[in-house]
Design a binder for these strands. Sequence first.
DNA 1: TGTAGAACTGAACACGCGTAAAAACTTGCA
DNA 2: TGCAAGTTTTTACGCGTGTTCAGTTCTACA
Lengths: 352, 352
Amino acid sequence: MTTPGAGQGKRRIDTMEELAVAIGVSRPTLSRYFQDPERVSRSSRARIEQGLEQVEYIPNFFATRMNRKTTGIIGVIIPYLNDLFFSKLLEAIERAAMEAGYTVITQCSHFDPLIEARAAETLMSMSVDGALVAPLGNHSDLKVHDRLRARLPFVLVDSRPDNMLDVEFVGTNHMQSTGLAVEYLCRVGAPPVFLAMPRVSFNAMARERAYLAKMEELGHEPRIIGTEPVEPGWLFEEHGQAVLDREFAAGRLIDASVLCVNDRIAIGALRAAATHGLEPGARRNGGLRIMGHDDYPLCPFLTPTLTTVAQDVEAIGRASVQQLVNTIRGEKTPDEQRVKLIDGEIKARESA
Amino acid sequence: MTTPGAGQGKRRIDTMEELAVAIGVSRPTLSRYFQDPERVSRSSRARIEQGLEQVEYIPNFFATRMNRKTTGIIGVIIPYLNDLFFSKLLEAIERAAMEAGYTVITQCSHFDPLIEARAAETLMSMSVDGALVAPLGNHSDLKVHDRLRARLPFVLVDSRPDNMLDVEFVGTNHMQSTGLAVEYLCRVGAPPVFLAMPRVSFNAMARERAYLAKMEELGHEPRIIGTEPVEPGWLFEEHGQAVLDREFAAGRLIDASVLCVNDRIAIGALRAAATHGLEPGARRNGGLRIMGHDDYPLCPFLTPTLTTVAQDVEAIGRASVQQLVNTIRGEKTPDEQRVKLIDGEIKARESA
DNA sequence: TGTAGAACTGAACACGCGTAAAAACTTGCA
DNA sequence: TGCAAGTTTTTACGCGTGTTCAGTTCTACA
């Protein structure tokens, strides 16, 4: 039972030609109306709008995009979605793009360079106005990015391969954010050990470097654990848990400060602590402390609540769209603004 | 620095016409080749494939889809992505659709019926071969679904409005899954209280009903909490935490079995327990127990690990694509198979 | 009432490719 | 060598809309 008058009985019209005769306006006028209602006189506009209420007509997406100089589409490639960071990022991007008047076509790589390559082809075949790409850690086929970049406005998001330092990029300022975390941990307790992960991600490596730099700056001895290779199909959480489980089982690190490369690793770390009867953050200025990075939405609901450093995902999404739109509109980005690094912010909670 | 011979110098070709003269084959032959390489003779195929390595050419997505009788596109509408259930579902759908040879266009409603309506328009304007829609709880504009359904093969996923019981649908068998949870809790302890949420979701309401039915069947007195309205922008976790916090603070339910309508509510519930010094599941056959529903990927890493009933997201995704593809191919679905409910499975962990 | 300028109409071409039909060409086989 | 069957080429039209252009109608204002 739908609302009465819902338009079930509206006559369906498939082409602009038919529509033109149906409401008594010329097709070029309709064409202009659909691109921007302001481009026709008020009287025609009223007439068209009234006519559209009597019939069901939807312009053909392909036919319209095929002929316009600009498609009004922004293509987005995301490495995977089973992660609240990327889903939040995608949401921010879609919102910003919509506000800027663009249609978003999202393609997900699902951890697979081949799918990523196919996604790039799809975007090119659709003549998108620009592409926003969050690469697959360091598994991406860089030729694919190069081809995209050579063809259309292109902005990297979140993660940046080492050899693409000259590309437009928006991401977290790991030097600042991880540095902040190290400082925070040093201020209220022992200098942290860094719980890393296998070197499959540029961001993870950037955070490692930031950790090393800040530890050196503060005059502490750094220590990094967890970089050993793992089996395919591994989960971040499992890795964090496994590494700390080994340590705790051997009686090591039970009084340490542990800075995890990201929150999902930290969640595994918390789990390892719990299984060993340890309570991260329970002793105010000492004892075991665990800290993450990202401000995963669940952090405030974990036990203990997870102290972390928040990435401003919303800002990253908005800024990347802004940067892309500027490029599309032909506004030359000054060299010093081609890379935009967004600062993080400490979220002090119970675990550290 | 890209790999040498990466194709930086390949001549770029924009139309099939140019390509035809470039490699010395006729355009219709090329057209057939791109639709299915098997449709041209082996000699032509070899020649074309060799030619394609010398140049850079990508068929125009719009021009190809505009003329084919079938676009090979499946449109997917998802209510929101900030939830690991939907991101897993989307992944399963995309994988299954890819295997079936379809291109997937995903549109996200972002909690907003207006955006959902626009997404539906986009899909119709693209003449997708079929649509897979996961509605916005009960906030969807049902006219939108009706229009889609009237135009093209249409399958609902995950959640089904009360007045669309005759539509093709694939989702969890809440009667079975929630029933299983109730039975499980009754078997090893006190009959459960049901921690629900405001009535904004058909699934949540279906689980409430399933809870009531099973409790009656087992001869226990049901009790449902947490259905009071909340402020806009509320989070599932916050709600679960707030409701149980009130109860625990008043000394109530501290020895109860609590079945939560979903895992995110349960995560909030675990948090409430922790803040009150309670340990769900610590006493084997009694005391406070908390159970969820969905098998959120993080369940095994929470403290305590969360007992829940797993939805077979992978199966839901696959089955929905299968159902849609059958409809697209014109295979009449027998009435009794128009609704496919997938059973859940208990994941016994520490919390209950 | 006349007129400049804006807005519209009709016709035509373009976009890149699918598709059909007929003619020309291969290939395999006797 | 001849012939049938399978391929390919040629040619032409169609898809639904963008876009242009010359000609027409409308509007505002004097």
